[in-house]
Simulated assay, not measured.
Amino acid sequence: MKFFMKCDEAVHVCDKSQYNEASFFEKLKLKMHILICVLCRGHAKRNTKLTKTIKSANIKTLRPEEKQRIKTKLQNEIKNGHNS
């Protein structure tokens, strides 16, 4: 198995890591790559900042029932609008 990765793979693993989907070995390879590559290091820092910002945003979303109610209403409006 290759220990060093290319930048495109590093970006992909960095994104996976953001969502806790990267394996231990992928994270290790990413850390090694980031030590060497300035561009990917910058990407990783921005990704980390984005993750922290999103987690601290305390965003409120609609419940699935509310989403379905709005979707149904929109579909009915579109259907009734085409029949007029």
Results as ranks from 00 to 15, higher is better:
residue 2 K to P: 00
residue 3 F to Y: 11
residue 3 F to V: 13
residue 3 F to K: 14
residue 5 M to V: 15
residue 5 M to Q: 11
residue 6 K to C: 04
residue 7 C to I: 05
residue 7 C to E: 11
residue 8 D to S: 10
residue 10 A to G: 13
residue 10 A to Y: 00
residue 10 A to I: 02
residue 11 V to D: 00
residue 11 V to Q: 07
residue 12 H to Q: 13
residue 15 D to N: 10
residue 15 D to G: 02
residue 17 S to M: 15
residue 18 Q to P: 01
residue 18 Q to D: 05
residue 18 Q to G: 02
residue 19 Y to G: 06
residue 19 Y to W: 12
residue 20 N to A: 13
residue 21 E to D: 10
residue 21 E to Y: 03
residue 24 F to A: 13
residue 26 E to W: 00
residue 28 L to R: 03
residue 29 K to E: 04
residue 29 K to C: 11
residue 32 M to N: 08
residue 32 M to F: 08
residue 32 M to C: 11
residue 34 I to R: 09
residue 34 I to F: 01
residue 37 C to N: 15
residue 38 V to R: 15
residue 38 V to W: 08
residue 40 C to D: 09
residue 41 R to S: 14
residue 44 A to W: 02
residue 45 K to R: 14
residue 46 R to H: 09
residue 47 N to D: 01
residue 48 T to D: 09
residue 48 T to C: 06
residue 49 K to L: 08
residue 49 K to V: 07
residue 50 L to D: 06
residue 50 L to R: 08
residue 51 T to Q: 13
residue 51 T to A: 11
residue 51 T to R: 15
residue 51 T to C: 05
residue 52 K to T: 03
residue 53 T to I: 01
residue 54 I to C: 02
residue 54 I to G: 01
residue 54 I to W: 01
residue 55 K to W: 03
residue 56 S to L: 09
residue 56 S to A: 14
residue 56 S to Y: 05
residue 58 N to I: 07
residue 58 N to M: 11
residue 58 N to S: 11
residue 59 I to N: 05
residue 59 I to W: 00
residue 60 K to W: 03
residue 61 T to L: 08
residue 62 L to T: 09
residue 62 L to V: 02
residue 63 R to P: 04
residue 63 R to A: 15
residue 64 P to N: 06
residue 64 P to M: 06
residue 64 P to K: 08
residue 64 P to S: 05
residue 65 E to F: 04
residue 66 E to Y: 01
residue 67 K to D: 02
residue 67 K to C: 06
residue 69 R to L: 14
residue 70 I to Y: 06
residue 70 I to E: 10
residue 73 K to H: 07
residue 74 L to A: 07
residue 74 L to D: 07
residue 74 L to K: 11
residue 75 Q to G: 02
residue 75 Q to E: 15
residue 75 Q to A: 13
residue 76 N to F: 04
residue 76 N to I: 04
residue 77 E to A: 10
residue 77 E to W: 08
residue 77 E to N: 13
residue 78 I to E: 10
residue 78 I to W: 11
residue 79 K to Q: 14
residue 80 N to D: 15
residue 80 N to F: 09
residue 83 N to W: 02
residue 84 S to W: 00
residue 84 S to N: 12
residue 84 S to C: 08
residue 84 S to R: 10
